[in-house]
């Protein structure tokens, strides 16, 4: 099986590579459209700011490649947010895979949300073997509201989408690569889809 992590200069990619390696899977980093298209699984990471990350995707044409992919794709953190229609962060358009507008948490709560929060309300095989109210590690200032594509929830200021799915596209707001055994289980579930 060939797994590719999309390399567009955003994100803690090394940690994802290590997490996959602990599970016995290898992955390659690539920004090459053909290599990405020809993979069995694609991971779309992201840490940083949304509008500049979108600019990087547009500069390499990946903004058009990603929405056309047919194999399972997993967006992580900012990767998930960029798969949405738009983001308030830098007022940018996203890739439009999930019909969701990413918003900022208000000043009623500490921003960013940093730490381990419970997730619940699963509606996807991505969460097989993960118990309801499991803890995952999150660091984010923006969130995806609940939508038709929501497959798991968390709560911070409000209930929001901690995971989304549409067809072959999956996105998680938390960092499975940093979320101990439950995070590893989620990555394994994705790789075994």
């Amino acid at each position: 099986m060939k797994t590719t992590i999309i390399d567009y200069g955003a994100g803690n990619i090394q940690s994802i590579l290590f997490a996959l390696s602990r599970l016995g899977f290898e992955a390659t980093l690539s920004a090459d459209a053909d290599e990405i298209r020809n993979s069995d699984k694609v991971i779309f990471p992201g840490v940083g700011e949304a509008s500049s990350a979108m600019d990087k995707l547009k500069a390499t044409g990946l903004d058009e490649v990603i929405p056309e992919l047919k194999q399972p794709v997993l967006g992580i953190c900012l990767g998930m947010q960029l798969m949405c229609r738009s983001s308030e962060e830098g007022n940018t358009d996203g890739l439009g895979i999930f019909d969701v507008e990413v918003r900022r948490f208000s000043q009623k709560v500490k921003v960013p949300q940093v730490g381990w929060n419970t997730i619940f309300g699963y509606n996807s095989s991505l969460f097989n073997g993960i118990s309801e109210n499991e803890y995952m590690y999150l660091v984010h200032s923006f969130y995806a509201p609940v939508s038709n594509d929501t497959i798991a929830l968390s709560e911070y200021e409000t209930e929001y989408s901690v995971a989304l799915q549409k067809n072959n596209f999956y996105g998680v707001q938390f960092h499975p690569e940093k979320s101990s055994k439950a995070g590893a289980q989620l990555l394994k579930n994705f790789l075994e889809l």
Binding site: Q14, S15, F18, A19, S21, R22, Y137, V139, H175, E177, K178, S179, S180, K181, G183, A184
Partner: peptide, 11 residues
Amino acid sequence: VKRIAAELDIP
């Protein structure tokens, strides 16, 4: 740091 990241699954 690289050796820690290889082994540790928390932040």
